[in-house]
């Protein structure tokens, strides 16, 4: 890759005590109001804490609330969303994320085809994106920063690219532009919502590499939402598993994939096809689907699909409790 960012070995895992959270989510619950005015719960009692330079992965089936979590942290919830409760805490202070957009917070979206303005040049958009963060800089300076950042994310001939329109760039290139834009803001939190899902495999690999390398430039934390367990396992330091709006498991990446405790996490991992596994055995799937969010079951949200569900699972929701070192799981029968 022509990028000047170089990846390096991840830092050794720290113990809890050594960790000082840069940004936290405390007890966040979000509902949506549907067309008929009915509320349904999309996120419940979410607690997260992200360390500087760490990449936190968020996985789960579609509809589990990953994007809602990402948007809530950015203050980008749609109009029909209701934040029931909870706080975003930056460096120990409760903050309003809306006021921090483009300053402490930046975001990369799933669809690079539509995330950039179609009739404005890349340069204008990259300059505008820095305005909130550097209100006193001249446009010329901001443009220069943009050009430098384009080089860093592996885009050759940055000056020329700045005067391009998005349709003149490929999907992979646009996603690089989006990442460059985010890094320019030097955010405390970079939120990436499925940033590689719309890209081809070889381009996905390039972009994942860029995220890995971005740690050299970025002192802030990254929230990396993806439905690809493989990608998350390779890229992230810590992983949160969401199911029907609740965190069912959270652990350091190695721990989560080596010793998953929650039946959902285990099932999800088992579903992932492996290239060198060409046995004729049937592939695994998780029968059933997400529960109806407007009338959630009394007990464990996963009980209807869980092979280990017992009486208590159907009656009382399991709390998210310690299941190992820096490892939490919400299950009555952790594996």
């Amino acid at each position: 890759m022509s990028s000047s960012l170089k990846s390096r070995d991840p830092e050794p895992a720290k113990t809890d005590a050594q960790r000082s959270a840069l940004i936290e989510v405390r007890d966040l619950s979000v509902s949506f109001v549907d067309k008929h005015g009915e509320r349904f719960s999309v996120l419940r009692n979410i607690d997260l804490s992200l360390q500087p330079k760490a990449i936190m992965g968020v996985v789960g089936e579609s509809g589990s609330g990953k994007s809602t979590l990402a948007n809530a942290m950015m203050g980008l919830l749609p109009k029909n969303a209701v934040k029931e409760k909870g706080d975003i805490i930056l460096k120990g202070k409760v903050v309003d994320p809306i006021a921090l957009r483009g300053r402490a917070l930046a975001m990369v979206f799933q669809d690079p085809m539509n995330a950039l303005h179609p009739v404005m040049t890349i340069g204008t958009q990259m300059v505008d994106a820095q305005r909130a963060r550097f209100p006193n800089h001249l446009i010329r300076e901001l443009r220069k920063r943009a050009a430098e950042m384009l080089t860093k994310v592996g885009i050759a001939d940055p000056e020329k690219r700045l005067s391009c329109y998005p349709h003149e760039l490929s999907g992979g290139m646009r996603q690089r532009v989006m990442i460059a834009m985010a890094l320019l803001v030097e955010p405390d939190l970079l939120v990436a919502d499925e940033p590689t899902t719309a890209l081809d495999a070889t381009i996905e690999a390039q972009i994942a590499e860029l995220f890995r390398a971005s740690r050299d430039t970025l002192d802030g934390a990254t929230l990396f939402v993806s439905h690809s367990l493989g990608l998350v396992s390779e890229l992230c330091d810590e992983v949160v598993v969401l199911y029907a709006g609740a965190i069912v498991e959270r652990a350091d990446v190695a721990e989560l994939f080596n010793a998953p405790r929650h039946p959902y996490t285990r099932a999800l991992i088992a579903c992932e096809p492996r290239s060198d596994d060409q046995s004729d055995e049937a592939m695994v799937s998780i029968p059933g689907g997400l529960p109806d969010l407007s009338s959630l079951p009394a007990g464990c949200v996963f009980a209807s699909r869980c092979l280990h569900a017992s009486q208590i699972c159907r009656q009382i929701a399991p709390p998210l409790v310690t299941a190992g070192q820096n490892h939490l799981a919400a299950c009555w029968h952790p594996q």
Partner: peptide, 22 residues
């Protein structure tokens, strides 16, 4: 409702700028 407007908002652009410029 388009994604690029959400991008503009994600970078803290004011409502005015979003509406009139973007």
């Amino acid at each position: 409702g388009q994604a690029y407007i959400r991008t503009a908002r994600a970078y803290g652009l004011s409502n005015r700028t979003v509406l009139y410029k973007y």
